[in-house]
Design a protein around this nucleic acid. Structure first.
Length: 364
DNA sequence: CCCCTCAAGGGGCTTATGAG
DNA sequence: CTCATAAGCCCCTTGAGGGG
């Protein structure tokens, strides 16, 4: 079993090697022994690996090497890590010959998708300069987590290549990388069909949408922490008490026509859209334009969401909506056309409790 | 915000060649 | 025959920046 300590030790040693201008490509048996003796105080044995065949150590050593390969490391790093762990230099060619080289076989895994409880929208894209394919997706809590610490992950694909599962494993060679505003993970090894789509023309940047699946728990979150909308995040725990179940698919602010919260009860799906339209009340000066904007905003949401979704939809708006300044003729006609479920609230302390109860009553 | 673009550096993989 | 080393191209990781 390769531990995080084994790997960190090797990473550190590699750093020290670089201080002496030795990169792994230049590491030789002599340099390794000199280095371990002088910098680490380790006396490495001089052993011919072939003489160890059929010993327990040899078997363990190979198991460790295979595990490292599965974690995404290559022969040079494996050579360093194993050499340090077993205190004897073993050249890269040995691992090249003994470790299975099909990385793809480790990452195709359909059954792992049974565990997921969160799905986010992601994209795979090809980076022409780096000549690699990468995954990019947004998830605020994960982004903040990986900003503060290295979050190692393994990735898995389903057979059709439409979904990618990320599983935390801090030993992995891959980690979540904070991009400009999103999380980036290198997506290799890439299933062949996906690779074809993205590398079809190397001069054109293309991307492919993909579902990013994971378990919230795996990264230390509750799945309700990952609800994107602030108000929906407050409301859901109270709905949960009434037996509503959160959809796995995460709604982000980019899904403008999807509402804020998707939940199920008794096999029925409900979409909830929450808008605190008076969060910052209009000032006296632009009084009229402000109310016009709010009216358009509300009508736009009602129209889009009602038109594009085929399930029960509940809108939660500010109670001030009853104000005559919002209700004009157009407003009345749109409301009469779509007949949306409307719940009005003050958004004062404790609103989420009252609203959850209203939703419960409304959907009985 | 969404989607796209650019980049450095070094390990990964493979093979030839020679030493032990 | 086994193992070590070097060399070279390929690929992966990490990271930044910006237009619309």
């Amino acid at each position: 079993m390769i531990t995080k300590q084994d790997i960190d030790f090797a990473i550190n040693a590699n750093r020290k090697l670089k201080e002496e201008s030795i990169i792994l490509s230049n590491l030789s048996s002599t340099k390794f022994r000199e280095f371990t003796k002088n910098r680490l105080g380790i006396e490495a044995k001089k052993v011919r690996i072939s003489s160890m065949k059929n010993t327990k150590t040899y078997d363990n050593l190979l198991l460790d090497a295979r595990e490292l390969f599965e974690l995404g490391y290559g022969t040079k790093f494996i050579s360093l890590c194993i050499s340090l762990k077993y205190k004897m230099y073993i050249h890269t060619i040995f691992f090249h010959k003994t470790v299975q080289k099909n990385r793809l076989s480790f990452v195709i895994n359909d059954s792992i998708f049974n565990q997921l409880d969160v799905i986010c929208k992601g994209r795979l894209f090809y980076n022409r300069i780096a000549r690699g394919i990468f995954l990019s997706f947004k998830c605020k809590p994960l982004y903040n987590l990986s900003k503060n610490e290295r979050v190692g992950v393994k990735i898995f694909y389903d057979t059709p290549g439409n979904k990618i599962f990320i599983k935390r494993d801090d030993r992995s060679s891959k980690s979540l990388v904070c991009g400009y505003s999103d999380i980036i993970i290198s997506a290799s090894p890439i299933p062949k069909n996906t690779e074809k789509i993205l590398k079809f023309n190397k001069n054109i940047y293309t991307s492919k949408n993909i579902d990013v699946c994971f378990e919230a728990d795996d990264f230390g979150f509750d799945k309700t922490d990952l609800i994107d909308d602030k108000n929906a995040r407050k409301l859901y725990p109270h709905l949960q008490k009434y037996g509503f179940i959160l959809e796995k698919k995460r709604i982000t602010c980019s899904d403008r026509s999807c509402g804020d919260l998707h939940i199920y009860r008794n096999g029925k799906k409900y979409i909830i859209e929450i808008s605190n339209v008076f969060e910052s009340p209009p000032t006296d000066k632009n009084y009229h334009s402000a109310y016009n904007r709010i009216r358009d905003n509300i009508l736009g949401k009602i129209t889009r969401i009602c038109l594009l979704n085929k399930c029960n939809i509940i809108f939660i708006f500010n109670k001030t909506l009853e104000d005559k300044k919002i209700i004009n003729e157009d407003f009345v006609r749109v409301i009469e056309h779509f007949k949306p479920n409307l719940i009005l609230t003050t958004f004062n302390d404790g609103w989420e409790k009252e609203v959850a109860n209203e939703i419960h009553q409304l959907t009985k």
